[in-house]
Simulated scan of single mutants.
Amino acid sequence: MSAYGTIERGAAARTVAFATIAFGISWSLWFLHPVVAHDQSLALTLDQLATFGPAVAALLVAGHRVAAGGTDAQPPRLRVIVAALATLTVTVLLLSPRWADVSSPMSAALLVLLITTPAALVWISGSRNPRFAKLLSSILSPRSPWWTYLVAVLLFPVASALGSGLVTLLGADVGSQPLVLAEGSWTGILIVFGVTLLFGGPLGEEIGWRGWLLPTLQARLSPFLASLIVGAVWGLWHLPLHLRGVYDAGMGTGPAGFALRVASSCLLAVIFTWLYNRSRGGLLVVILLHTSVNNTSGYWLPVNIGLTAVLLVIATLMVVTDRMYVRPPQASQRRSTWIPA
């Protein structure tokens, strides 16, 4: 067998291992929800811990790729300490009300684990261990253009507003708006943003999806094809939540509804890939984008066919203008900075 064939087999095996670990952790915790549903605090804690399955999987399989041009610049130790302590302080404050509902030692232990996990990930991002530093260092070592952060925060709200405007012009029903932004205080908005980022999926998921899986696939596939694979995995990973009826977002229940959800994940994955590559592999940028997507669709603006149409146009423009359909190494240099070890 050629050396190239050995590398390909190794990459495939590591990808399968990553998916198995990510799904195993998350699905196990999500499927425990009905068992502990009588304890709402414990059930919520398990649901939120499940979002870190992809991050744990990425950490376990990390170390099998290197950054183009050498190793990543490690953040200064002081920055790591301050960021980890700040993250821990924020998580303690955000989840402090939950202690009133703790009903057992197990519930308390899992809540402590949930509170400390984000700070632990921030601490690991400053690790001197290359296999972890290469995966997480971009969280604390900004290497992304300033405008990519603006796109991450504003793209989805603007797309949602345009989509709702399009639906209104066509005389159709815009859909329900869970919360009215004008009625929320800035403090409340920041709290929702923080809880979503830290415990609602963006942090725990993006370390896996865009931190490890996407660059691994892009090393061998075009950004567009890699996006479709990540999107399919990303959508399938949410299956237990769909079965519980908390992830349909108006797309309907059953196989048809879930197929629409997976298709929407593939559409979003193309946009995430474009921004990830344009941000030079900035994890913080895609974490912010994921948070913006979750907050906009879950709290402030409705999800409707207009939004899907706008996102489809945006994704198409991204694919065409950046030639995301071209396989490496002929692809644009704006693609992922990662290459296989």
Rank of each mutant, 00 (worst) to 15 (best):
H33F: 14
V16P: 02
P302V: 04
P75G: 00
L94M: 13
V66N: 08
S222G: 04
S125C: 09
M324S: 09
L190H: 05
S264Y: 12
L169Q: 08
P97S: 03
Q40E: 10
W338H: 11
P54D: 00
V56A: 04
A226P: 04
R131W: 06
G254R: 15
P97W: 01
T291A: 15
G175A: 01
L214M: 05
W146M: 06
I314H: 05
V319F: 05
A43T: 07
L46S: 13
L42T: 03
A331L: 07
A219I: 10
V313A: 12
P97E: 01
S279H: 04
G201W: 00
A152W: 12
L114C: 06
Q40V: 13
A19V: 10
V270H: 06
T20G: 02
L150H: 10
T71R: 15
G282W: 06
P240L: 11
L94A: 07
G165C: 00
G211P: 02
L42I: 07
V35D: 15
I271C: 07
S227N: 02
S127E: 04
A133G: 11
D248P: 06
S104T: 06
L221Q: 03
A249F: 14
Y4H: 13
P105A: 06
A83L: 09
T321D: 14
L88F: 03
S265Q: 03
A12G: 08
R280T: 15
V233D: 01
T87D: 09
C266Y: 08
